[in-house]
Every structure is written in C-alpha cells, then in structure tokens.
C-alpha cells in the first residue's frame, strides 16, 4: 500500500467506497419486486469481518448505509429506515457469529445469518409502519429471496477472500 492509504481509517474508507461502488452496480439491476434486492454492497461487510475492530466495523456500516441512500436517492425518504434497520441487525448478527465461531462458520453461513437478521428486522418495520397485516403475506417471499441472495453473496465473499491478492495484503496490514 502507499503511505497515503496505510492507516486503518483509510482501509475503512476504501471498504466503504467499495460498498458504494457495488451499490452503483446493483442500482443498474432492475428489481422484480420493490424493496427486493441482491445486496451486493454487503459483500465488503462480509469480507471485512476479522479485519476491523467493532467500532471500525460499525463505522463502515454507517458509511455503507449513507452511501447507498445517496446513490439510490432514498437518503431523504423512509426507505433509509429499512436500510439502516436491516444493515444494523445484519451486522450485529454477522459480528456475533464471527466472534463466537471464528473460522468454524464459513462466510456463506455468516451471510445467511446476516440476511436472516436483516430480513426479519425489515419485516418488523414493515409490519409497524407500512404494510401492517399484509406483511405476513410477503414475509415468506422475502425470507426465501434473502436466503438465496445471502448464499450467492457469501459464496462471492468466500471466493474473493481465497482469490484476492489485495485482500491478503490488507489482512497483513490490519493484523
């Protein structure tokens, strides 16, 4: 790394920029159903486990949510609430699984746990403010799509960790 980017704060900024970059890629993909998305911007969060302290990890999370809101133009709308609730609960669960089990659970497992937390919290908010009782009708669809997308994201993150030369350098620096 260059002298410019060798601090941990720089690394958090770079990861959050990657989340922003993946958000732009995701933004190009049409959604079959409103609110349903793949969640590419979560890949940096899955990869970042073990690289950052808890504080840095939540800073990354905050930057990801704000960046996503800015890219999709939802930063001044109620949708940011869904994004924030989903991301926070997902991050807490992923961090918990990683802290408790370390490498005994693969990134796919961690990603599934995170997606479950994210979907459940978003359904709860949806139940409270948006769809009311109708939430129970859409819940199975959201849980199923969350499961599928989390497996895809987990596999992508796992593959990146194994293949990436850049990640290996980052890991050495963060240690």
């Amino acid at each position: 790394m260059t002298p410019h980017s060798n601090t941990r704060v720089d690394l958090v900024a770079l990861f959050s920029a990657c989340a922003l970059f993946l958000s732009t890629i995701e933004y190009m993909i049409p959604k079959p159903i409103p609110f349903m998305r793949l969640g590419l911007a979560n890949i940096p969060l899955i990869i970042a486990l073990g690289l950052f302290s808890k504080r840095e990890y939540f800073l990354l999370l905050l930057l990801k949510v704000l960046g996503q809101g800015l890219i999709s133009g939802t930063i001044f709308s109620y949708i940011i609430l869904f994004s924030l609730a989903g991301s926070i609960s997902s991050a807490i669960i992923m961090l918990l699984i990683y802290t408790l089990f370390k490498d005994k659970v693969s990134r796919v497992g961690i990603s599934i746990g995170g997606a479950l937390g994210s979907t459940l919290s978003q359904l709860l908010i949806s139940r409270l403010i948006l769809f009311k009782e109708a939430t129970y009708v859409i819940a199975p669809l959201f849980l199923f799509s969350g499961l599928i997308s989390s497996i895809i994201l987990g596999l992508a993150a796992q593959r990146f960790i194994v293949m990436s030369k850049w990640y290996q350098t980052m890991k050495e620096i963060s240690v």
């Binding site: 958090v12 920029a17 970059f21 850049w166």
Partner: peptide, 30 residues
Amino acid sequence: VISLQFYYFDRLTTKWSLIEKKRPFIGAID
C-alpha cells in the same frame, strides 16, 4: 472518513472503466 470514502469511490469509478478484462468479476475487482 467520508471525504476519503468519496475520494476512493471516484478512483474506483475512473479506474473501472479503464479495466479491459472485466471477467471473471472477482479477478477484475481485485
């Protein structure tokens, strides 16, 4: 950090368009 985030984002979007081989995607990102 926000300032750096947008700085890196700008670098990422500029450089991404210059990368010719974008498949496999993970290799291109690396």
